[in-house]
Design a protein around this nucleic acid. Structure first.
Length: 589
RNA sequence: GGUCCCAUAGCUCAGCUGGAUAGAGCAACAGAUUUCUAAUCUGUAGGUCUUAGGUUCGAAUCCUAAUGGGAUCACCA
């Protein structure tokens, strides 16, 4: 649409002798109820045209129609100049832009970006919150890659700490040597079981101590189980063979479980970082900060940064005993990642409860003079809430990721079988379809919402399969593939004989042309929701076209071939857009 | 208490850097299939864009305040 902006600048110069910049021209899609495809808002021009909005619009419209062969006509309503572009123009868009294989393929930008997501703790299985995180991270990585970035997907696994020791201790105490093999439990679930068990026993001990006269705080500190867990952590840090061995074993169970969940979820990583390796990092950065005078040491030997001038607080960066806190590790890990990849941007996909942490982290790195700090970005997403409120792992109100996915598959199977969609399918193809649809419904449900907004999920109300949903879009794709499968081949020469567009056809081309811009906007805003909402609109427009225009029984061969080309283009864009969301589309359903 | 985020139809959400009569889906109601897949399409109904000020030719959008909801302010991660 740059040519319209350029011509409008010329029009304004010619008619009103005024110089504007491209950014001064407000170009938008014409609303459905008016004639035309692009609209120029001409209110701002009246300042120098010294004429009414209508007159100004008419003058510019006439100029554009005269200058540009693509402009077939225009109409003016108040300060809106609605421009109709010629069928010839839209057909060229279809044949020259949309249909070629390089449509919406961005040239490599030469920039590298890291997307860190998932970042689970290894003491319990993944839940719905992780699912949102994983889907967001994976989708953002796909989108950035489509936008021309070289993307590195990383997962920083929190594989050490007191919470892991809790699971280990409970297993040691109550496990009787139970393994995933002997129990038939998925490894992460098995370890999670002992985490819950620890907490239950711990609570019993707390109550007992309280009954014997201790305060809540005292009891929490003095309970034998927590003391033993802390001892275990110290042993771990000291490199105790037995503890390390148990730690390795139990973590390996968890990793096997996670791998399965990630696979089902359809996400992947290029690089894993483990906190057991990175938690010691960051101390040299503390030293560096002290030397630069960015940090200061208190009398008790703890190290701090004063951020009060930036409207924040004083923040501890190293404990008085010289050990790391979360911030220390993250400072060190940020440096490590940069040393490893020298990326231009680094995206942290982490929930919004850590907004403050990342604000501080980035600010510290800037103060330390790290040039790469300006490329850091916290993709802060909202919590997933249940109707009952927050999910709490200890209270058993979490929605488990594996259970959820199984549930989705089951619902998909039920819906699909009821609709009689799988006649002639082989068993394997059926199972695959159920999974694609179930995951399509779930992923779309979670990704269509703006990442930064909190999300309400009601496990009792199954995710919809109709309307503004993943399966609706998948169905549209299957319809397209079905039509295309009924012809032997496409005759693009014949198609070009068709040159008078119906509104439904034009709308579809208009929508298709927007795809590259959508990728760009989604990449800039790190927002899969942009893509999700776009592809839904596109599918709706296609269904309308499909309903109104017969393809295989078209009025003549040219119309048929043209509509086949158009359908093929729509199918390709739907497929690509859904892939950006990590959603597969079926050939038939 | 300080700081940050959010508030649009009964429900779940769109609404781009300010622009036309604020849009979808679900739920409700009424229709469409001798024709390429009805997980579709068409229509009806549903709104004080939380409230009050302000900026502007023009505000759901920007600013200020209030109200309601959430997060955070650990020598936890």
């Amino acid at each position: 649409m740059d040519f319209i902006i350029g011509a409008t600048l010329k029009a304004v110069k010619h008619l009103y002798n005024t110089d504007l910049f491209a950014g001064d021209i407000n170009l938008q899609e014409t609303r459905k109820e008016f004639e035309g495809q692009v609209t120029i808002v001409t209110f701002p021009f009246t300042k120098f045209s010294k004429k009414s909005p209508e007159q100004t619009g008419n003058e510019i419209g006439a100029y554009l129609q005269n200058e540009l062969k693509e402009v077939a006509g225009f109409n003016v309503i108040k300060g809106f100049l609605n421009i109709s572009l010629s069928d010839d123009y839209w057909l060229k868009e279809l044949y020259i832009e949309i249909l070629p294989d390089d449509f919406a393929v961005f040239k490599p930008s030469g920039k590298k970006v890291m997307v860190e997501y998932s970042s689970p703790n290894t003491n319990k299985p993944l839940h719905l919150g992780h699912v949102r995180n994983n889907l967001l991270g994976f989708s953002v990585a796909q989108i950035l890659s489509a936008a021309g970035y070289d993307v590195v997907k990383t997962n920083l696994v929190n594989d050490r700490g007191i919470h892991i020791c809790k699971s280990m201790l409970a297993w040691q105490r109550f496990g009787n040597g139970e393994t995933p093999e002997t129990s038939g439990l998925k490894g992460d679930h098995l370890v999670g079981k002992y985490y819950v068990l620890f907490d239950r026993e711990y609570k019993v001990q707390i109550e007992a101590l309280k009954a014997s006269g201790q305060t809540e705080d005292e009891a929490k500190k003095n309970a034998p189980l927590i003391r033993e867990a802390q001892e275990m952590l110290q042993k771990w840090e000291a490199g105790d063979e037995e503890v390390k061995s148990l730690w390795k074993t139990m973590n390996s169970w968890v990793y096997a479980g996670f791998a399965e969940t990630y696979k089902k979820l359809g996400v992947s990583f290029d690089k894993f970082y483990y906190e057991s390796n990175t938690y010691i990092l960051g101390k040299d950065i503390i030293e560096e900060g002290l030397q630069k005078g960015v940090f200061f040491r208190k009398a008790d030997n703890s190290v701090w940064i004063d951020l009060t001038a930036d409207g924040l607080d004083e923040k501890l960066v190293l404990r008085s005993d010289g050990t790391s806190v979360y911030m220390t590790q993250d400072l060190g890990t940020a440096q490590l990642k940069y040393n490893d990849f020298h990326m231009d941007k680094s995206i942290y996909v982490v929930g919004n409860e850590q907004d403050y942490h990342f604000k501080v982290l980035f600010l510290i790195l800037q103060k330390l003079g790290k040039t790469w700090a300006k490329g850091l970005y916290h993709l802060s997403y909202g919590m997933v809430d249940l109707p009952s409120g927050k999910m709490k792992s200890r209270e058993g109100t979490v929605v488990d990721a594996d259970d959820l996915m199984d549930e989705m598959d089951k619902t998909a199977k039920k819906q699909t079988d009821e609709a009689g969609k799988v006649e002639g399918f082989g068993e394997e193809e059926k199972q695959h379809l159920y999974h694609i649809i179930g995951m399509g419904a779930l992923k779309y449900f979670l990704l269509k919402v703006d990442p930064k907004k909190r999300l309400l999920f009601d496990p009792n109300e199954s995710v919809d399969f109709q309307g503004h949903t993943g399966p609706f879009i998948q169905y549209t794709h299957a319809r397209i593939r079905s039509v295309l499968s009924r012809v032997d081949g496409l005759d693009s020469n014949k198609a070009t004989e068709y040159n008078q567009l119906a509104p439904e056809e034009r709308d579809l081309i208009v929508s298709l042309t927007q795809f590259p811009e959508i990728i760009k906007v989604a990449a800039e805003g790190y927002s899969p929701a942009v893509v999700a909402n776009y592809v839904y609109e596109l599918a709706k427009i296609y269904n309308k076209f499909y309903h109104e225009k017969s393809i295989l029984q078209a009025e003549d061969e040219a119309a048929k071939q043209f509509r086949l080309q158009l359908s093929a283009a729509a199918g390709k864009v739907i497929n690509k857009a859904m892939a950006l969301l990590g959603i597969e589309v079926p050939e038939r359903m």
